[in-house]
Amino acid sequence: MLSYLINGISLGSVYAIIALGYTMVYGIAKMLNFAHGDVIMIGGYMAFCSSSYLGWPPIICVLFSIVVCTVLGIIIEKLAYKPLRAASSLAVLITAIGVSYFLQNAALLIWSSNPKAFPNLINLPSLQIGGTQISAVALITIAACIVIMIVLTLFTNKTKMGKAMRAVSEDKGAAQLMGINVNGTISLTFAIGSGLAAIAGVLLCTAYPTLMPTTGAMPGIKAFTAAVFGGIGSIPGAMIGGILLGIIEIFAKAYISTQLSDAIVFAVLIIVLIVKPTGLLGKKIAEKV
């Protein structure tokens, strides 16, 4: 029971970190970034390559993967999304899907479709608490999630850049008039989101060590529903949504049915949205008549 709970929180933490990327980008650019899941996959491959082919120490591998994904995030934003700032949200959505296809197929060309065995970057013994074994990976994932949550909250609430970010997500035009560099702020958001995706990629692949070009797709969709679950655009919401989703998934797998676990996760999401149409922590949208 306890081990299921820990596993659920650990999986949920990965979803939460991915969902943070979704929710921040949505908050500021008002777009569903479908390529986010594939940035996770790239992050995983980067850590895999630097560790397996170059033999770098684990910490350097993780940092390398974060740097590559951050740069990738900025490039994607500049090339694909920036020209569409004024376009309809559907056009941006389709472009994001195009980017997602591109990343997946590029990965397919570079690394082929054969699954790669992800190296164990976290080599620590598992912990014993009252007869239940808890793997170090799970604990590190949860710890990473908490640290990221605290740092991000402090960043958006206390720093000037965080303030600019909140201002841009509230009203782009007004923010620009106040002298905020809107494009720079949006790029920064993408950079942070993609960096988080890299961390999530490494954690995900350490927990489930098979790496394929489609690795990021399903966690991406689930993290996206987690972001919606908690109320999209809200950072604590993404966190709570992600962790709840992870717990529900693990418990559904353990007690109901392995095959139907995804269906159960999505069914819970639908019920939540029917009761609270803007998610758990979402803002109520006031409507002008």
């Binding site: 969709i221 529903t225 919606v228 999209i232 049915s257 139907l260 995804d262 269906a263 029917i274």
Partner: peptide, 24 residues
């Protein structure tokens, strides 16, 4: 009952549920 992106995500969820149920 839902609107905008929330509606989109629920249709996505239903699509996944149908696929999942069909699978078993």
């Amino acid at each position: 009952r839902l609107r905008g992106d929330y509606l989109a995500i629920v249709t996505l969820a239903f699509g996944e549920i149908i696929k999942n149920v069909m699978n078993c």
